[in-house]
Design a protein around this nucleic acid. Structure first.
Lengths: 217, 217
DNA sequence: ATATAAAATTAGATAAGACTAATTTTATAA
DNA sequence: TTATAAAATTAGTCTTATCTAATTTTATAT
């Protein structure tokens, strides 16, 4: 159906389109795929010809209904495989993304649905990202971050925005995972550092950047 | 590590090398991969440069120790995924090969071993082919076919040589799977057709070609 | 032993998807 | 508004893996 590259572009454009009020330019796509903008321009032409995207210099790149449907399916496969790798094969949080990047391209028509069933129809992947349903519906993603809380608030870690292994390994070191309870003890006015208590334990200080990458319930 | 094509060539050469006393020529590889012989000649050069194979016009193509090791790993992955697709995801016998052809190329270093453990270290795949172990050792493959039996002999289906879906669907129709008991009632001298009884039921006649593609215990 | 067929090889073409370098267009700031 | 920077685009190159067509080598049969 699609080539590997086409799928990666579709997925990348979809991910960028999730960032509200963000114009999807060739440069933005190039950065997200670590490609040269010139290559992106070529692929924009190809995907436009195939009616998977529309490109308007003013408005940037936008997925067509068909392009959107298929991009969502790729993301669905990615997130289902992540659940599989973590829950069934015992991988760690920070190892699953790259493998799922490969697995998501397996093209069999019923594979995602069978895997979904096998895994018990999970709603969120191990990073807390919503797993699109077979019909294309996407569960509501989390939007409040740890940095949005007020002093004294308590929350439950629901998802992470940053999925780099350096971030995930830091979380592991701090004993933070999906479901961990965190209380915001203090916000340092100087640089917005956050003093928190993890699972009721002694306090730890983390940066603003850190807090902005943790989504909470 | 390897490109998709390189892996497919390695696997193809390995499979051909399993056929005893068979010289692996460019033409044979071309047929097995449904490629043009000219393309094969190019890839033979490439794999020779990488020291994965040796090519001697007289002796044909041969895997080097390194090439063999890696070819076996690809076959290991293929067969493990086949077990997964059949046992865990509920696919049928004739659907799993093509999907495993894609899955086998997922390159993570520990994936095969984790999958192996998750599946309970199976010795044979759903077609009865031996699954190479993590150390590269390959369990003994079955070698006696239904066509080798003498009239009156009873056997248990252990594996199939042909994995085309037309063959597998025919088997399904005849209610034959791995483990099915078959008794050879008669061999028709004219064309070596076989009259057999499947699971003790009424007799059925199958062709010599059919019998040669069923390996028995 | 030689004609013929089959197999192997070479030469050159093509397509996909990436690149660099040069150019054009658009945005931004003085 | 105009100079400058940034972004987008074009033109042309490269690599991988395929192909076709032509040629050379090897095998086979009379």
């Amino acid at each position: 159906m699609y080539t590997l590259s086409e799928e990666n572009y579709l997925k990348s454009i979809y991910r960028l389109s999730q960032q509200l009020n963000f114009k999807i330019t060739p440069t933005a796509i190039a950065e997200s795929l670590k490609n040269n903008p010139a290559s992106v321009v070529d692929m924009i032409r190809k995907l436009t010809d195939k009616q998977l995207i529309e490109y308007d210099k003013k408005k940037g790149v936008k997925l067509t209904p068909v392009g959107l449907k298929d991009a969502v399916l790729i993301v669905r496969r990615h997130r289902l495989w992540e659940v599989f790798l973590l829950e069934k094969l015992g991988y760690h949080w920070d190892e699953i993304h790259d493998i799922a990047e490969e697995l998501e391209h397996i093209s069999d028509a019923t594979l995602a649905d069978r895997l979904d069933k096998f895994l018990g129809f999970p709603e969120y992947d191990p990073h807390g990202d919503p797993i699109p349903k077979a019909n294309g519906k996407v569960p509501k993603p989390y939007s409040v971050t740890l940095a949005d809380l007020k002093t004294g608030d308590t929350c439950r870690v629901a998802a992470v925005k940053d999925t780099s292994s350096s971030f995930l390994q830091y979380l592991q070191k701090l004993d933070i995972g999906i479901g961990t309870n965190i209380k915001l003890l203090e916000k340092i006015p100087y640089d917005n550092s956050l003093v928190i208590s993890i699972s009721g334990k002694e306090s730890t200080t983390v940066s603003q950047k850190f807090g902005e990458n943790i989504l909470v319930d």
